[in-house]
Structure formats: structure tokens, C-alpha cells
Design a protein around this nucleic acid. Sequence first.
DNA 1: CGGGCCTTTGACTGGTTTCAACTTCTGTGG
DNA 2: CCACAGAAGTTGAAACCAGTCAAAGGCCCG
Lengths: 189, 189
Amino acid sequence: MIAPLLSHIQKYVPLTHEEQEVIAQYVQCLTVKNKQYLFTEGAPCSAQYFVIEGCLRMYFIKENGVEQIIQFGIDNWWISDYTSLTLNKPSQFYLQAVQPSKLFVLKKDKQEALFEHVPKLESYFRRIYQRAYAAAQTRQIYFSDLSGEEKYHHFATRFPDFIQRIPQYMLASYLGFTPEFLSKIRAKK
Amino acid sequence: MIAPLLSHIQKYVPLTHEEQEVIAQYVQCLTVKNKQYLFTEGAPCSAQYFVIEGCLRMYFIKENGVEQIIQFGIDNWWISDYTSLTLNKPSQFYLQAVQPSKLFVLKKDKQEALFEHVPKLESYFRRIYQRAYAAAQTRQIYFSDLSGEEKYHHFATRFPDFIQRIPQYMLASYLGFTPEFLSKIRAKK
DNA sequence: CGGGCCTTTGACTGGTTTCAACTTCTGTGG
DNA sequence: CCACAGAAGTTGAAACCAGTCAAAGGCCCG
């Protein structure tokens, strides 16, 4: 059950059997239905989520009322509103399942306690956040260099299986344009 | 000399006198002239930079040949191409001084060695990267919700002193539009 | 003092949005 | 299992935000 998380951690730091037990006690497993929310805008977000199955989307509502997805949560990826989590501020985002999903929850206070018991997890999360930040930098290249059409083709060729799993309007939202425009791109060929 | 860095670290983790000495041995201080490069696209980037004075810009060249700034490096902020640093790949960016600047350099191998000697720095960088990632998430809100004109006004009111220090074409590049368009925004009032 | 870089201004162009109408898909209850 | 209502996707016309190109003016630094 907790195996996927432990094996992910062990790609970065080795764990003794005892450490694995401790970790298992500090995280909870959670099964969510499609459309279920993990947190919503305005409410404080006090946990991080590790997706092992299914798919989440994190989004906010723009001035004009349109939903803007800023990230999908898929297998082996931690997702959360880190501003809310770090500074104890109300969340800026909604985190919602877009498929029936299985995930692990690590609450903020549990994480801090876990660092006391298993200090090498500091190293694990240091690497995780470093990679997440690196990915955010790289994503900026695609989002500022590519036109709408190019972004779609880039994403469609990189994640051909993923785009099958989500409705088009969510893909359009993530790529930063309207569903109508995506429809026109797809009509071209 | 190294005081600004040590006091920044101590906002997150306390340091003994010995630990401060060790850190001082692993980082180098560097003074750079305006327009000097720290690394360029294609070359591996094997260090992070902590700015204590002056200003850096990190940018890449778009398909159409235009420079796109993705980040400014100012006081008390670590800056680097973390994809290059983490995965030992050639850098995607240029990092260049836009003012005479003072900074500290932490090479990748030195950082790893430093973690051995001062394990609590894992915790420091874990927090630093978590905040950096949080900031990247928040920035996405502004960049996807605001029009060009709104981004300018938002940035101008938030950092009124900073925009005085850099040429307008760099601000336009950072905000994701052309210098001509910025000029037209400013002409409106 | 000069030359090149930065900024401004205007006319034209184009990618993307908006709006509205229509079609297709989906899932839920009878 | 079918029917139907609401959600999702498509299509076209008109409008708009921002880019491109070109020319002129300002300013900084050698």
C-alpha cells in the first residue's frame, strides 16, 4: 500500500526498515472520487499530496471567472499550494480530483515531526523541491517561447497517453487558452 | 564579507561558530562587472549564486531570436539553472550581471561536501527551494491572469524602486512583451 | 562630440478571444 | 435499457490585444 511512496523516497535516500515503519505512521492513505476536493481557495492548505494513481488538477479562478489550471498531479509527484503551506496563508488554489485517485497525505505538522525522527528526509525533500523548481524554470521556457498551437503539439507529443485521459477544456485551460481555440487547432489536421 | 550569507542562513537554521567557519571555506566571494556572464547557454552550470549587491538577469534566446528574461537575481536570493545543476545537463539559460554586483558562489561539489560537514544545511536549502517553488507557483497566477498592461502596473507598484534600476527593454522582456508595447503603456498616463 | 543603443510613435498585421448557435457525447433516473 | 438534460466539443464572424516593421528622436558613454 505505502510501497510506491517508500520506493520513490528510496530513489533519493536509503531507508532502514525502522525508518520505513516510522514514515508509514506519519502519512495517511486516501482514496478520492472524481471531482472531490482536497482543498479550496481561501481555506488554509496544511498538507502535501503524493499521487500514486489517478489524476488531480490544481487551479484558480481568474478575474474574468474562468478556471486556470496551473498543474496536474499525476503518479509519483508531490502537489500542494506551497505558499499557503509555508506561510500559513489561505490557499490561492483549488485542488480537485479529475479521476478516481489514490494518494498519500502528509500534513504539515507531521512532516516537521518526521524530520525529527528521520533527518534524511530533509535531504529527500530538498531534492524533490529542487527538482520541482527546476521543472518550473523549464516550463517557463515552453510557456513563453511557444504559440498556443505549438504548446499543444509539444504537449501532445510529449504526453500522448495523458491527453486521452482528461477532457479537452482542461487541457486548454492548462495550456493557457480557450477550449474553442483548442478545437480549432485540432481541426487543422 | 560573508556576513550577509550567514545571517540569511540563520534566519532558517542556527549556526555554531565552527559551522560558520566551515561554510566560509566552501563558498567563494565574487565581484562582477556590468554585463559579465556567470554562465551561458550550452555550457554546464555547476554552481548556484547568492546575490548580496547589484543585480543579475537570467534569460534565454527565443526561437525568433529575442531575449526572454525569466528571473532577476537580487539581494538575498539564490539563482541558478537548477535543471542543469541537478541533472548535469548543458544550461538552457544565460546568467549575466546587469549592474556591478557582489555575490557568493557555491559550486555543486562543494555543496554536497558541505552537506556532509553541516547537515543542517540540508534543512536550510530544503526551505529555500520550497519557498522558491512557492514563489514560482504564485508568479504563475500573475502571468496567466493579468494582461500586459496590468502586469506592468502590478510590477511597478510592487517594486517601484527596482524598475528605476534597469533599462525598460529588460522589464518588457521579463514581463513577456515588447519594448514598444511597454512604451505605449507608459504613454497612456 | 559622435555613434550606437535605447525609447518613442504610428500604421499595419495576426494570433487568440468572445459570443452565439449548433452538434455530439455522457451519465443518470425512470 | 432507453430517454433526455446538461455538459463538452465544434464552427464561424467580429473584435481586440499585442507584435512587427520602420522611421525619428533622445541619451549615454567613450
